[in-house]
């Protein structure tokens, strides 16, 4: 079985994240980045399937030069190969364009099982998996909190507020997993050392028979018109209980602020 994990390179959430002032896109070049934490669950899900059967896992990313780090992390965790789609024309792509590029690459890779995270930690729209499935004409079982693959059947549990659904599909299909699906492994020392020797291909838009005007900021269906930084946090109110009136003060605070 051929499994492809779509993994995004995102700015490190613990560092300073910014937008580029010239075009209001997320600044990916000038910051420290890493494999989106939520996509580590996707890598783990793929590796688990591999360990329980016979499969080859490829990590696919679309992104600028540093996005190679996302592929590398997947390889260190245990994936077998990587594909990095990189092209200057991709900058500013929206979810629609991103899904187009991913779908083209996935067809070329002839994936049986495509695994996504539940959403990126930067864009975070959570729509790319469904869009890709639509483009490939494949069934999509999304937001799995528990995943089992048995032969060609993929079964997930999707947890909702009121009920949990069990959803099943047959390969080839598109799967996305939530952060409840598993516990992503740390790369082992052997995994780290082996990663360098694993094959990584770099593809341009031309390799995918796409042209620059189909993707990028100009082709985006929406435009970010303005970006405003979140106002700095102000100090909160501290209710001190010095004379036993703390509980009453707390209720007063909660009700005047309409929290109750």
């Amino acid at each position: 079985m051929k499994i492809v994990v779509c993994a995004k390179f995102v700015p490190d959430a613990t560092a300073d994240r910014r937008f580029r002032s010239e075009d209001n896109t997320v600044d990916r070049a000038g910051v420290d980045g890493l494999l989106s934490e939520l996509d580590e669950y996707a890598v783990e899900a793929a590796l688990t399937v591999k360990e329980n059967g016979d499969a080859e896992v490829t990590v696919l990313t679309v992104g600028p030069e540093q996005a190679a780090d996302a592929v590398k992390k997947g390889l260190q965790m245990g994936a077998d190969a990587g594909v990095h789609v990189i092209d200057d024309a991709i900058h500013g792509s929206d979810a629609v364009a991103t899904s187009l590029i991913l779908a083209k690459a996935l067809s070329k890779l002839e994936a049986d099982l495509v695994v996504f995270g539940m959403g990126s930690t930067d864009g975070g729209m959570g729509v790319v998996p469904a869009m890709v499935a639509e483009r490939l004409g494949l069934p999509a079982v999304t937001l799995g909190s528990e995943v089992t693959v048995d032969g060609t059947t993929v079964k997930i549990r999707r947890d909702g507020d009121l009920a949990s659904d069990t959803v099943e599909g047959t390969l080839p299909l598109v799967l996305s997993v939530s952060d409840q699906a598993n516990e992503p492994r740390y790369p082992s020392f052997k995994g780290i050392m082996a990663a360098k020797k694993k094959p990584v291909e770099t593809w341009s838009l031309a390799d995918l028979e796409l042209s620059g005007d189909q993707v990028g900021q100009a082709a985006a269906w929406t435009e970010v018109v303005e970006v405003t930084a979140r106002p700095p946090r102000t100090a909160g109110t501290i209710v001190a209980d010095e004379d036993g009136s703390g509980a009453a003060q707390l209720v007063e605070f909660l009700s005047t602020n309409k929290f109750l």
Binding site: Y186, I192, A195
Partner: peptide
């Protein structure tokens, strides 16, 4: 080296 940086990062996360 890239490997040592990766080792550092992975161990740090575990710790």
């Amino acid at each position: 080296t890239e490997e040592r940086r990766a080792l550092r990062a992975a161990v740090s996360e575990l710790g």
